[in-house]
């Protein structure tokens, strides 16, 4: 550990390449925590966006028209505006309107903090795409299969859960994974509302140490690694769910 730190310190003195995260324990720990928060943000918003997608796709098929319009409006809003603008809108636009609690100093403080708003904004953003992706999968499930399920006595909800969704997920998995990979990368925009994830911490560090090119490279490698691991994971799932003869391998 000591020798690694000494090596990076020497690297700085001799070449000017300043990677403080490898020799300054404070900076290193901060960056590690940043990566941790990026992962937390990614996992939570991936899960929530999947829930949004499944529920939204089901609501798109209900008989009650106003619900369908609501889903349609939601999709249009979130698909047609930039995620960064949405994040600002949630945090600064809506954030001030939500109820407040009183903190230790007796001052009003909004109940949702920046991390929670980031999870909400990211989930709704990716969720809008997920709804459409699930819909494409659902529509690809043969009508005859659905009718057979209904003939066997499945209700609409039960056939959705047990028959349609399992098949639809397998069909739309490739495009779903695409969207989720995008979502993992999009977590970086949370830096705009001061969520201390990897990019935010990197920004702080390069402001303190003025080692912009070095930290830019570190950030790039960090995301490459994180997204690489994620892609590896989802392709494993894709393979595990593969149904011979039904989905292309």
């Amino acid at each position: 550990m000591e020798s690694i730190q000494a090596w990076f310190r020497r690297l700085y003195d001799e070449t000017g390449i300043n990677l403080t995260i490898f020799y300054d324990p404070w900076d290193g720990l901060k960056y590690l925590k940043g990566i941790g928060l990026t992962i937390e943000l990614a996992v939570l918003s991936v899960l929530l966006s999947l829930v949004v997608g499944v529920v939204g796709a089901w609501l798109q098929g209900v008989r009650f028209a106003p619900l369908r319009w609501l889903v349609y409006g939601y999709i249009q809003f979130f698909r047609n505006t930039p995620p960064l603008a949405q994040l600002y809108f949630f945090y600064f636009g809506l954030g001030a309107l939500v109820p407040t609690t009183t903190n230790a100093f007796g001052l009003a403080e909004p109940i949702l903090n920046n991390f929670q708003w980031a999870v909400i904004a990211l989930s709704f953003f990716a969720g809008a795409f997920n709804v459409e992706i699930f819909r494409s999968g659902i529509e690809a499930v043969p009508h005859t299969t659905v009718e057979a399920a209904r003939a066997l006595g499945y209700s609409r909800l039960k056939s959705y859960i047990h028959i349609v969704l399992p098949l639809a997920i397998r069909i739309c998995l490739p495009s779903l994974n695409n969207n989720l990979v995008n979502l993992v990368k999009t977590t970086a925009i949370a830096y705009a509302i001061a969520v201390p994830e990897a990019l935010y911490v990197a920004n702080q560090l390069w402001s303190d140490n003025l080692n912009v090119p070095e930290m830019m490279n570190v950030v790039l490698v960090t995301y490459l690694t994180l997204v690489g691991l994620f892609v590896f994971g989802v392709s494993r799932i894709e393979r595990a769910l593969h149904v011979p003869g039904y989905t292309p391998s």
Partner: peptide, 19 residues
């Protein structure tokens, strides 16, 4: 809570995001 611009930082103060 460090924001990119001074305006955002001040808005956050007025919203009660920080003491």
């Amino acid at each position: 809570l460090a924001f990119a611009g001074i305006a955002e930082s001040e808005q956050a103060l007025r919203d009660g995001r920080c003491i």
